[in-house]
C-alpha cells in the first residue's frame, strides 16, 4: 500500500500555491504518475494537494488573436479528440493519442504529462541513484538499452513525455503560478538537463503550479506530426520519436522545428537538422541529411546503439510523409 499522507483539495489557485509551498507537499493532478512514484518509494510525501477542483485549469479555449490555451488539467483524451487540435496542431493530438493507454489518457493530464518523472528502471527501482541523491547513475555500467544517446552527463535518463516534443515543435509556451507570482516561458526553457542539475527535470520549484499551455495561432501552409517507435502498440514509452512542425511556401520549407523524444534527458531539439531542410524542398536527400544531423552528436551507451538507427529511420520517414501529406 502507498505510505501514509494527508490530503487536501483546495478550491483556489492561490490556496493551492500556498499549501504547496510547504516542504513535504506534492501536487496531485491525474495521479497516474505520482501514485506509482509514491508506491515505489521513488518520492515521498507528507501531504498531497490535489488540484482537481481548480476548474479554471481545465479545457481548451481559443483566444481573441487565434492562439489556443490548454488548461494544465485537460486530459490527454480531451486533447487527442479535440477537432480543432486535430486540424491545426496534429503533432499534439498525435502525441497525446500515442501516450500510455486509453484508461491512462482518460485520467492523465497534459500538465502531468509534461511534468512526469523519468522511467529509468534504476530511478524507479530500489537503487539510490544520483537523481535520488545517491552517488552514481547505475545505467552507465548497467542495463542501458532504454537510456539516452545524447544530452546525458552523469545521469542518462530519457524524458518520457510524448506531448512535450510536439508542444515544443509547435512553439508552445507555459504559464506557471508560484509563490512569487506568475511567469510565462517557452516550453523549451521549461526542461532542465542533467548537466545543469541532475536532481530535477524542469524548472518547477516548491509551490509552482503549471496552469496552462499556450499555442500560437495556426499559420497558413503549416503542417505538423508526431511519430513514435515503441516495442508494443500500447502503454509503451517511446524508444525514439520525432515531432515535426513545418511551414511551407510553394513546396519550399520556410520554417521547421524538429524535436526528438526517447533519446535525451529533455525533449531534444535539433537546430542543425532544421537548418538543413529550411529553404529547400523535402526530398530523399534533404530528409536523409536532416536525419543524419539528428544523431551527429549522439554517443550511445553499451546497449542502445540501435537507437541511432531508429532515430534516423523515424526522422527520414516523418519528413517524407510530411511532404506527401
Amino acid at each position: 500500500m502507498i505510505p501514509w499522507f494527508t490530503y487536501s483539495r483546495p478550491n483556489s489557485l492561490k490556496d493551492a500555491v500556498k499549501q504547496l509551498s510547504v516542504p513535504g507537499t506534492r501536487l496531485h493532478a491525474g495521479g497516474t504518475d505520482l501514485l506509482g512514484c509514491l508506491r515505489d518509494g521513488v518520492v515521498a510525501a507528507d501531504k498531497l494537494v490535489s488540484i482537481s477542483h481548480l476548474a479554471e485549469l481545465r479545457g481548451i479555449t481559443r483566444t481573441g488573436n487565434g492562439s489556443v490555451r490548454i488548461g494544465a488539467l485537460t486530459t490527454l483524451t480531451e486533447i487527442a479528440e479535440h477537432p480543432y487540435i486535430m486540424e491545426h496542431y496534429a503533432a499534439l493530438s498525435e502525441g497525446a493519442s500515442s501516450a500510455a493507454s486509453p484508461q491512462l489518457r482518460n485520467q492523465g493530464t497534459i500538465g502531468g504529462n509534461i511534468s512526469q518523472r523519468p522511467r529509468c528502471w534504476y530511478f524507479r527501482g530500489d537503487f539510490h541513484c544520483l537523481r535520488k541523491g545517491g552517488e552514481a547513475c547505475y545505467a552507465v555500467a548497467g542495463e542501458n538499452q532504454f537510456h539516452c544517446i545524447v544530452g546525458g552527463q552523469s545521469c542518462f535518463i530519457v524524458h518520457p513525455s510524448d506531448t512535450a516534443p510536439a508542444l515544443i515543435a509547435l512553439e508552445a509556451r507555459v504559464r506557471i503560478t508560484g509563490p512569487q507570482g506568475t511567469r510565462t516561458l517557452p516550453l523549451e526553457s521549461f526542461f532542465v538537463g542533467p548537466q545543469k542539475d541532475f536532481t530535477r527535470e524542469n524548472v518547477l520549484d516548491a509551490g509552482d503550479i503549471l496552469t496552462e499551455i499556450l499555442l500560437p495561432a495556426p499559420a497558413a501552409n503549416h503542417r505538423s506530426s508526431y511519430r513514435k517507435v515503441r516495442a508494443r502498440g500500447a502503454w509503451d514509452f517511446a524508444l525514439a520519436g520525432v515531432a515535426l512542425s513545418v511551414r511551407f511556401s510553394n513546396g519550399i520549407v520556410q520554417l521547421a522545428r524538429i524535436v526528438l523524444s526517447g533519446v535525451a534527458p529533455v525533449p531534444w531539439r535539433v537546430r542543425e537538422a532544421e537548418k538543413i531542410v529550411t529553404g529547400k524542398e523535402i526530398d530523399d536527400e534533404t530528409a536523409s541529411q536532416a536525419a543524419a544531423a539528428c544523431v551527429k552528436d549522439a554517443v550511445p551507451l553499451a546497449k542502445n546503439e540501435y537507437k541511432l538507427h531508429l532515430v534516423r529511420g523515424v526522422v527520414e520517414e516523418a519528413l517524407l510523409a510530411m511532404k506527401q501529406a
Binding site: Y7, R9, H28, G31, T32, L35, G36, R39, L48, S50, S52, T77, A100, S101, P102, Q103, L104, N106, Q107, W235
Partner: peptide, 25 residues
C-alpha cells in the same frame, strides 16, 4: 500500477484504472 487493466471501472462513462485513482478523487 496501471499496466494490466484488470481494475478498470467507468468514471463518468470513461474507463479508468481504479488502482491509480485515489478513492477521494
Amino acid at each position: 500500477r496501471g499496466e494490466c487493466g484488470a481494475c478498470t471501472v467507468l468514471i463518468d462513462d470513461r474507463p479508468r484504472y481504479s488502482c491509480l485513482t485515489l478513492a477521494l478523487e
